[in-house]
């Protein structure tokens, strides 16, 4: 069972205190979007084997959504960061690159 540190309150929360929210950094497609773009927004997920950026809510805590960079193979948590970010911060990226030197994220 995972432990993730909530970046808003600093609590090392266990998985039962959290609610999962799926892939992070999805770009919302509104009424102007094409069928293809909207379908992709709703359904296309990277389902990464490796470094995944994902959403969690500290549901049994401060109630804030945050994002985590987690390795779906090793379960390593490279870091957590605020939900308002457009991507993982430098610290998180650097931690990922210790294990995956060629890793980069695309939004």
């Amino acid at each position: 069972m995972l432990i993730l540190t909530c970046p808003y309150c600093g609590v090392r929360a266990e998985e039962t205190e959290l609610a999962p929210g799926g892939e992070a950094h999805l770009k919302r497609i509104g009424p102007d979007g094409s069928d293809e773009a909207f379908e992709s927004y709703l359904f296309d997920r990277t389902n990464t084997k490796g470094v995944q950026l994902e959403r969690w809510r500290h549901a049994y805590g401060c109630g804030k959504w945050f994002l985590a960079a987690r390795d779906t193979v090793t379960m390593q948590v490279y870091g957590t960061y605020e939900a308002q970010a457009f991507g993982p911060n430098e610290d998180v990226q650097a931690t990922v690159r210790v294990r995956h030197p060629d890793w980069s994220y695309k939004l």
Binding site: A19, G21, R28, R55, R57, A59, G63, K64, W65, A83, Q84
Partner: peptide, 13 residues
């Protein structure tokens, strides 16, 4: 409530 907070925190913050 969680749905509202999700949109407020993650989309229209």
């Amino acid at each position: 409530h969680a749905h509202m907070e999700d949109w407020l925190q993650c989309e229209w913050w």
